[in-house]
Computed example of a mutant assay.
Amino acid sequence: MLTLTAVPAGPGQAQAVRDRIGALVSGPLPADAEVRGDWVRAPGARSGAVIYVHGGGFTDTWPEAERMMAYRLSRTTGRPALRVAYRPAPAHPYPAALDDVLAAWRSVLDTGVPASEVVFVGESAGATLVLSALLEIKRTGGPLPGAAVAVSPVTDLALTGASLTTNDGKDLIDRAALAAVSDRYLAGAGPRHAPQSPLYGDLRGLPPLLVAVGTDEVLLDDARRFAEAADAAGVSVRLDTYEDAPHSFHLSDLGEVLLDRIGRWLADPVRDHTVSGPDAGPYALAEGPDGALWFTEIGAGQIGRITVDGTVTEYPLPDRQARPHALTTGPDGALWFTEWGSGRVGRLTTDGRFTGYDLPRPDCEPHGIAAYRGAVWCALETGSLAAVEVSR
Rank of each mutant, 00 (worst) to 15 (best):
L209F: 03
A189F: 09
R184C: 03
A85D: 13
N167D: 10
I262F: 02
A42D: 08
S391Q: 15
L24Q: 04
W336I: 07
S342K: 09
A104E: 11
I303M: 07
L82M: 11
A9M: 02
G330V: 06
T111V: 12
S107N: 15
V113D: 10
M1G: 10
V312Y: 03
R36W: 13
P289F: 09
A386W: 14
V118W: 14
A85E: 13
F120M: 13
T296M: 00
G78A: 03
S276W: 01
P90N: 11
G263A: 06
G122C: 01
G374F: 12
F58W: 10
H367R: 13
G55E: 03
G368H: 15
A212E: 04
Y71K: 06
Y86K: 04
S252N: 01
A233T: 04
A230M: 12
G356Y: 14
V121H: 06
L73F: 02
A81S: 13
L385Y: 11
L293F: 08
A375Y: 14
A177R: 12
P8W: 00
W377F: 15
L134A: 10
Y315Q: 04
A230Q: 06
G27D: 04
L178N: 04
Y242I: 00
T241S: 13
R46S: 08
A379C: 13
A245W: 00
L209S: 10
C364Q: 14
E136A: 15
G291P: 08
H92F: 06
V270D: 06
V53A: 04
V235E: 02
L164T: 05
L203Q: 12
P28H: 05
